[in-house]
Amino acid sequence: MARIALLLLAVFLVECCHQAYAAIDAYPFPDDELRLRHNALIDELRCPQCLNTNLAGSDSMIAKDLRREVHRLLLEGKTNEEILDFMHQRYGDFILYKPRLQPGTLVLWFGPLFLLLVASVVLFRLVMSRKAEVTNLSAEDSRRLEELVGRK
């Protein structure tokens, strides 16, 4: 029984992986460096038809075509930057998972930093105000406090 369960699990896992990597094409590369760059680029580019899948993970026609284009451009000797530009010119900001630094994306880049700053200020003021409460004890109160915590 346990064996059957294990077998089913194995089949299930194989099937999962098979689906996750359904979109592998056998593109020939002259060397491993180009292959690695190809894989990195198709990881970083977003499939224009899908809402949240990269080119590497999509089975759609356009993703297939764009993977082929990335392969072609790499063989032509284009740099990563040139390839990202090529895609950006045609498909816009949508295709880049790593948004470029430009007026429209300032909020994306600096929003979190801004929030961190605001949170720090709020936290700082909160902590400071608490400190103030404690130091504002009258002589009588601080004597009582010390008594209560058992220092005397």
Partner: peptide, 11 residues
Amino acid sequence: GILAIDLGVYG
């Protein structure tokens, strides 16, 4: 799909 890519077509 060569021209389509140059046109930014995705469907």
